[in-house]
Amino acid sequence: MADITTNENKAWIGGDIPFKASYGKLMMWFFLVSDALTFSGFLCAYGFMRFKYAHVWPVADEVFTHFPFLKGEYPMLFVALMTFILIMSSVTMVLAVNEGHKNNKNKVILWLGLTIVGGFIFLGSQAWEWGHFIHGDKGGIELANHDIVHVVNSDSHFYSIYDLVGVDSYADDVNITIDDVKGALMADSQYGIRLADKSVVSGEAAMAYLNNAEVVLGANLVRNEYGHQLFANFFYFITGFHGFHVFSGVVILIVIFINVIKGTYERRGHYEMVEKVGLYWHFVDLVWVFVFTFFYLV
């Protein structure tokens, strides 16, 4: 039997730092690897369903078109702003870690504080995005075969069902029946309906589709005015899971922010805790980069 005390292979007898990284940093990295695989599982499942229902999947550009306080349609712009906010908060996080290496307490407080502010702005933006998605935009019609179709104008652009029947979409008790929509479609032949496969029909041909159809306003886990139900379910699940990561990140940031102010890490002699939380925060940004591409762009 080999005598371990004289074993030259020192990596197995302790005293060495594996990978020249501290225990905490190493475990944070391995947690992030497993989390990355979890998120890729979700995004791949999204891709699977999207490929499976390729002919009826909603186009993200037609779903996320609004910007707070602005009238009109600005596809992509708000998500782009959210991406910018998260990148910016990643930058302030690196700056905080950078000052931590120099044991510069006041600068760490400054940059860490700004990172928390960025996290809250992102969470607020996501709440707005969810609120808008839940309330719905232009309304949809669910046919008897459960396909979701939309009203379009003569240019084949989506036209709001609220405008079609003359109702304020933010009124207290909006109640639009399929007969209201049928009547309005028959009264004005410039409007038609765009079927799930994106072909447009109008007049009597459209009426044939609308037998036993229902008006769908807004989106939840059961009904989705934008198109295939799974689109809404994946939207809530993936952006919700990411948003929960951002929320946890903000909570952890606040905890270490208080510790920095109290001088815990100054007494400890190093700011490695800021670095470890920084790894988590960058990972949240990293995941958003992929969610942005696969949910909104592609």
Binding site: C44, G47, F48, M49, R50, F51, K52, A54, H55
Partner: peptide, 8 residues
């Protein structure tokens, strides 16, 4: 994605 495309 291959499987999803096949089912489609």
């Amino acid at each position: 994605l291959t499987e999803g495309h096949y089912i489609f």
